[in-house]
């Protein structure tokens, strides 16, 4: 009984944490390049609504996925223009992006709220592996997009730490001038990674509306975009830790849903409100943990995070 519950919870956690994982990985790249994008929530919502709308209109969820990624990328491009080229405050621009995204998605999504049967991304149990006891249901019996997340995290880690562009990415977020003198176009790369971050946030939104939830409801992300920002800090800008955080978050988010049929909770239905607070409190807890470990391991944010890069400024 308890084991079954745990397996269900973990499987659901991996499924449910996938959307936030994409968003978190995207934000890791943007922040590693030196640009903080607080607009994830808005980009995820726009991704979710456009994916759902396109899937419903065309009958093709894959097309929806593609459009969601493009929409996320375009919104991030806007953020890039305002913060990289115009050098506006990254915090405020990101906030504006979130407002824009949540408002626009509500407007666009109003007719979609009634729609319940848009096509979804398929579930694909991996042959043989899916039948393994315990591991099978947790890892190998999922929606296709969940596998994408499972692959994406190590791939992102490998890219950052083991490839030449990854090396350049680390440099432009830490000391852009040093990269610039060696012929790396700092602002062009920043644009690329910010847009990539947006594409991933759009993908995350699409994962919600096409696979995880799968529906369109106004403000359906319920703060997941913000949680992604928190997870980036917890993850110390490392995609593997981001995966850990995302799946943990997913499990905690699922806890009230999966446990509501346990006899204990049937007796106290009001507990649901408090169970629903857990994911948010969990993020604060993660921030506490990372504040401590940050001091211990002396790992901080990319040094140039939040600062626009300008070459032709008067030196000393």
């Amino acid at each position: 009984m308890e084991l079954a519950f745990l397996v269900t919870l973990l499987a659901a956690g991996i499924r449910s944490g996938t959307a936030i994982l994409f968003a978190t990985i995207g934000e890791i790249f943007a922040e590693r390049s030196g640009v903080l994008n607080l607009g994830i929530e808005g980009m995820m919502l726009m991704g979710a609504v456009s994916a759902y709308g396109v899937a419903f209109a065309t009958g093709n969820p894959w097309l929806g996925l593609g459009v969601a990624m493009a929409v996320g990328g375009l919104m991030a491009l806007l953020h890039g223009m305002v913060t990289i080229s115009l050098r506006a405050d990254q915090v405020v621009s990101g906030l504006a992006l979130t407002f824009l995204g949540s408002g626009l998605s509500a407007v666009l999504g109003a007719p979609l709220v009634e729609v319940r049967n848009a096509p979804r991304l398929p579930v694909f149990p991996i042959p043989v592996l899916a039948d393994l006891p315990i591991l099978g249901p947790i890892f190998f019996n999922h929606n296709v997009i969940v596998y994408l997340g499972l692959v994406m995290a190590p791939l992102a880690w490998w890219y950052i730490h083991r490839t030449r562009p990854g090396m350049e990415l680390r440099a432009i977020g830490e000391y852009p001038a040093a990269a610039d003198v060696l012929g790396i176009n700092v602002n062009r790369q920043r644009y690329a990674y910010v847009v990539f971050g947006g594409v991933m946030a759009g993908l995350g939104g699409a994962a919600l509306s096409l696979a995880i939830t799968p529906l369109w409801i106004e403000d359906m992300t319920a703060g997941q975009g913000w949680i992604a920002v928190g997870l980036v800090i917890f993850a110390s800008w490392d995609p593997l830790r981001a995966a850990l955080g995302s799946y943990l978050f997913g499990a905690i988010r699922r806890l009230p849903l999966d446990s509501q049929n346990l006899p204990f909770f049937l007796a106290y239905p009001q507990l649901g409100y408090f169970m629903n607070m857990l994911p948010y409190l969990f993020v604060i807890l993660l921030m506490l943990i990372s504040a401590r470990s940050e001091m211990r391991r002396r790992i901080g944010a990319p040094a140039a995070l939040g600062q626009p890069y300008v070459r032709e400024e008067r030196g000393v």
Partner: peptide, 16 residues
């Protein structure tokens, strides 16, 4: 113009 958290070799080969 060196990035403190990267290695000597990474700094030498940055942008190459």
């Amino acid at each position: 113009m060196l990035t403190p958290s990267q290695s000597v070799a990474e700094n030498v080969f940055l942008g190459a």
